[in-house]
């Protein structure tokens, strides 16, 4: 049977990908941020998961504002990265697992999460940068990957509670897949940041650290917060941290925290790295 062996959180901002491409990861500005992934790299090397589900938001590559699914899952054999308008060279394509995806989609829909199923899905920096920061650059990626997109761009958005419940349903879906397979869930984005408006540039370290503690030990604290409250505390784009709750919900009630790291600022954001395993 398939099994979720752990959950990871990571930033997905464009600057992270640029720093990797430009060879800046050991420069002073970036070093502490990138070094914070070392324990995660060791864990991935040791556990060798077969598949990763990357929970992220699309920023106007695959989805335009004409159709904005609240939750969408890739159900294809492969996923392409593409030019987001900045002319960057796309990464190598990512192998998916269509049979697994369709099983997960069916299970989620049976559990009343009405997913948008995507047989073609371009993946943008929100998906690609977590893959690059976790696995390095590859012509053939060492793990199968499935995109799970959450709308955090055009309001109304799903609540933190709804994301948490989606994660719980995702666990039911994965646990019932008949093939032996080690699965990791990555919750990406966040933490506090605001890109526009007179309040642009705000970072709320206190709130970020409270969110980290909640996501480890007391997910109901974060799940109970309204979208308005999270935006007020974490910034309009800081709402992305709700996607960590999908990962958290998929790990079960208690978790063991193997690694926690926080750094600010990375570009405009507070950046948190967590490595969690389901616990007793």
């Amino acid at each position: 049977m398939a099994e979720i062996i752990g959950g990871i959180t990571t930033s997905h901002i464009p600057a992270v990908g640029n720093a990797i491409s430009d060879g800046l990861t050991q420069e002073h500005y970036w070093k502490r941020f990138f070094d914070g992934y070392q324990p995660v790299h060791q864990w991935l090397e040791e556990k060798k998961p077969d598949l990763i589900i990357v929970v992220y938001n699309d920023h106007g590559l695959n989805f335009f504002l004409d159709k904005v699914p609240t939750f969408a899952i890739g159900c294809a054999d492969a996923y392409q990265n593409a030019d987001e308008g900045w002319g960057l060279k796309p990464t190598a394509p990512f192998d998916g697992d269509a049979e697994f995806s369709w099983h997960v989609a069916e299970s989620l829909i049976n559990q009343e999460f009405d997913m948008c199923t995507c047989q073609e899905m371009l993946v943008d920096h929100g998906f690609v940068n977590p893959m690059r920061v976790l696995f390095g650059d590859h012509e053939v990626w060492p793990i199968k990957a499935i995109p799970l997109a959450v709308n955090t761009v055009q309001h109304p958005l799903p609540s933190a509670r709804r994301c948490y419940k989606l994660g719980q349903a995702l666990k039911v879906a994965i646990d019932s897949y008949p093939e032996d397979m080690k699965v990791v869930i990555a919750g990406t984005g966040g933490m506090s940041h605001q890109l526009q408006g007179e309040r642009a540039g705000m970072i709320n370290v206190d709130y970020d650290l409270e969110c980290i503690e909640s996501i480890i030990n007391d997910p109901d604290w974060f799940a109970d917060q309204s979208t308005d409250h999270i935006m007020e505390q974490a910034g309009t784009e800081g709402i992305e941290t709700i996607m960590w709750m999908v990962m958290r919900g998929a790990l079960g009630e208690k978790v063991n925290c193997l690694h926690k790291h926080y750094h600010a600022p990375i570009s405009n954001t507070g950046a948190g790295v967590l490595l969690l395993e389901g616990g007793a």
Binding site: Q154, P156, E198, R199, D228, M231, E232, T236
Partner: peptide, 18 residues
């Protein structure tokens, strides 16, 4: 009207703006 319209210095991209 939404409560988030009162968050200072912020523009929430919602249906009205979209």
């Amino acid at each position: 009207k939404h409560d988030y319209e009162d968050i200072p210095g912020s523009y929430v991209f919602d249906g009205k703006i979209a």
